[in-house]
Design a binder for these strands. Structure first.
Length: 397
DNA sequence: TCTGGGGTCCTAGGACCC
DNA sequence: TCTGGGGTCCTAGGACCC
């Protein structure tokens, strides 16, 4: 008998906004918009009352305020989200371990859980007799103990579960087989599929494929021709919702970066504005330091240093070097970033600059720790529940 | 509506080695 | 003197996600 897979996608509703509401209950029920206050800031998360005004993620704040002038704008608070997130996913991991939904890790059992962001995760409910009852209980516990409401999509695959959890938010609990999903999603635009963004959607629309059922009629050969081997094959599998990628309970970080968009463009040409040019150089130095210190804190050493520049005209470029040895020495990272900057500094106004450190050496060991334990260190932790710590604090969007 | 900051993954092309 | 093909490492750009 074939083993029936049950994969849940768990996604916190309006996570950032809810974190703030939990800290300040007077915000509850009001149109809360999390985001910066500068002229170029965008909305990170909008509470459901704010969404009723048409406010949404990634929207320029200026537009959000035009749509909803009475919105309460709140500056993002990383630490608040990280600590709340840890409480939520620790609870989930512990419940799964207690219930026996575990896989083997090098150092013992790990919950069959893949964190996919600060506010979402996939859980594979192996060896549970009543997975749905378990999930409902878990979601109720999480809400009681943390105040966070999780939406759930449950199906035989990550893709279907991910799409499903989004269908009836907030507080969704959508259970679908592949066949039921094919029927229910047939007329939906392809943009509901994670991995099909604006560009791919446009290309597909040009070929006459706008919905999932359109795509199901596509010749696989045509998809391969337009999208190449890898993506073409994937799209063909999306069409019948047969995409199936195993969970990755432990993931390694690949890079650490820091970048900043200026409220106004800054002239990088030293001849025209030496002071501005000096400020930019200092910022590169500062960011390189930050990034290197982040690596030190986490016990990583990298080999690849890169800078990123976006000009006022929205031309974006990166310049990178690979060092002969791995390093976490701030002075080394700073020196490389400054060298790249000096060699590739634009002579036109810039809107963004950034620094990244990558190509980490930590192959030998997964980045994980005891959930809710120490904040950092490759194996830092209390030795309790083992859980991926992977994506540390990805912003929402 | 003029577009953040943190990431991941993929592709193309060049250098270099055998 | 001209020319092979595969593999690896690296850079750069871009799509995409939260």
């Amino acid at each position: 008998m074939a083993v029936r897979r049950v994969i849940a996608h768990l996604d916190a509703d309006a996570f950032y906004a809810t974190c703030h509401e939990l800290r300040d209950p007077s915000l509850k029920g009001r149109p809360v918009v999390v985001g910066g206050s500068g002229p170029r800031s965008i909305v990170t998360t909008a509470s459901y009352p704010a969404r009723r005004f048409g406010v949404g993620s990634a929207m320029p704040m200026s537009r959000a305020l035009r749509l909803c002038p009475e919105a309460v704008v709140i500056a993002p608070d990383r630490e608040l989200y990280t600590s709340t997130s840890q409480r939520v996913w620790t609870l989930v991991a512990e419940a799964m371990l207690a219930a026996g939904a575990v896989c083997d890790g090098e150092e013992g059992p790990i919950a069959h859980l893949e964190q996919a962001g600060i506010d979402e995760a996939y859980a594979e409910l192996v060896r549970l007799e009543k997975p749905l009852a378990f999930l409902r209980g878990l979601i109720a516990d999480v809400r009681e103990q943390t105040g966070i409401q999780l939406s759930a999509g449950v199906s035989p695959s990550r893709l279907i579960s991910k799409i499903s959890s989004d269908l009836e938010k907030p507080a969704a609990f959508v259970v679908l087989s592949r066949e039921q999903a094919l029927e229910r999603l047939a007329g939906r635009p392809l943009s509901i599929v994670p991995g099909i963004g604006p560009k791919a959607a446009e290309t597909l629309a040009g070929l006459g494929f706008r919905t999932l059922s359109d795509l199901a009629r596509a010749e696989p050969a045509a998809l391969l021709e337009h999208f190449g081997e890898s993506r073409g094959t994937w799209l063909a599998q999306v069409a019948d919702l047969s995409v199936d990628v195993p969970l990755q309970p432990v993931r390694l970080r690949k890079s650490i970066s820091s970048e900043n968009t200026f409220e106004q463009d800054v002239d990088a040409d030293a001849a025209r504005d030496p002071e501005a040019a000096a400020r930019l150089r200092e910022q590169i130095e500062q960011m390189a330091l930050e990034v290197a210190q982040g690596a030190v804190r986490r016990g990583f050493r990298g080999r690849n240093v890169a800078i990123k520049v976006r000009t006022a005209a929205w031309r974006t470029y990166t310049r990178a070097t690979t060092l002969p040895q791995y390093t976490d020495e701030p002075a080394r990272v700073v020196a490389e970033a400054l060298r790249l900057w000096d060699e590739h500094r634009p002579d036109e106004p810039v809107r963004l600059i950034g620094v990244r450190l990558g190509s980490f050496e930590h192959v030998e060991r997964a980045e994980r720790g005891a959930a809710g334990g120490a904040q950092d260190g490759p194996d830092g932790g209390t030795g309790g529940v083992r859980q991926l710590r992977l994506v540390l604090d990805p912003a929402e969007g």
